[in-house]
C-alpha cells in the first residue's frame, strides 16, 4: 500500500511537470525562432519559399521501423564508452575533492 501510494505520488509529480511543460511550450507564440509548427530548420523556410520543382526522393533520416542490430550495438557501445569516460572523470573529481587517494595500493 505504501509502495503504491509513493508510486502514484511520483507519477502525479511527473504528470504535473509534464502537463506544465507541454502547455508551456504549446502556448509560446509561433514567431519565436525554433517554435513554428512546420519545423525549426531554417533550410525548411528556404525550401518553402523556393519555386515548385519536382522533389527528389526523401532522404533517410535514420528513423525506420526495421531493427538494425549492428548499428544498435555500435551506438550502445559508443554511448556506454561516453558514459564510462564521464563517470571516470566524476569519480576522479570526487576523490580529489574528498582528498582520497586516487588508487589505494594498500591491501586489506
Amino acid at each position: 500500500m505504501k509502495f503504491l501510494t509513493r508510486f502514484f505520488t511520483v507519477l502525479a509529480v511527473a504528470c504535473v511537470f509534464g502537463f506544465g511543460l507541454y502547455y508551456g511550450i504549446q502556448s509560446l507564440p509561433d514567431d519565436l525562432p525554433g517554435i513554428s509548427q512546420g519545423g525549426s530548420n531554417p533550410a525548411e523556410h528556404v525550401l518553402q519559399s523556393a519555386p515548385q520543382q519536382p522533389l527528389a526522393p526523401p532522404a533517410r533520416d535514420g528513423r525506420m521501423d526495421e531493427i538494425n542490430i549492428g548499428r544498435l550495438l555500435r551506438s550502445m557501445a559508443k554511448n556506454l564508452i561516453l558514459i564510462s569516460i564521464l563517470a571516470c572523470f566524476t569519480i576522479l573529481a570526487v576523490r580529489v575533492l574528498n582528498k582520497k587517494p586516487l588508487i589505494n595500493f594498500r591491501k586489506k
Partner: peptide, 18 residues
Amino acid sequence: ILCIFLVAMEPGASGVFI
C-alpha cells in the same frame, strides 16, 4: 534502466515502434 536508455538513444537502429 541503463540498457533501455542505451537502446532508446538510437531510434534509427531499434526502429520507431520498439
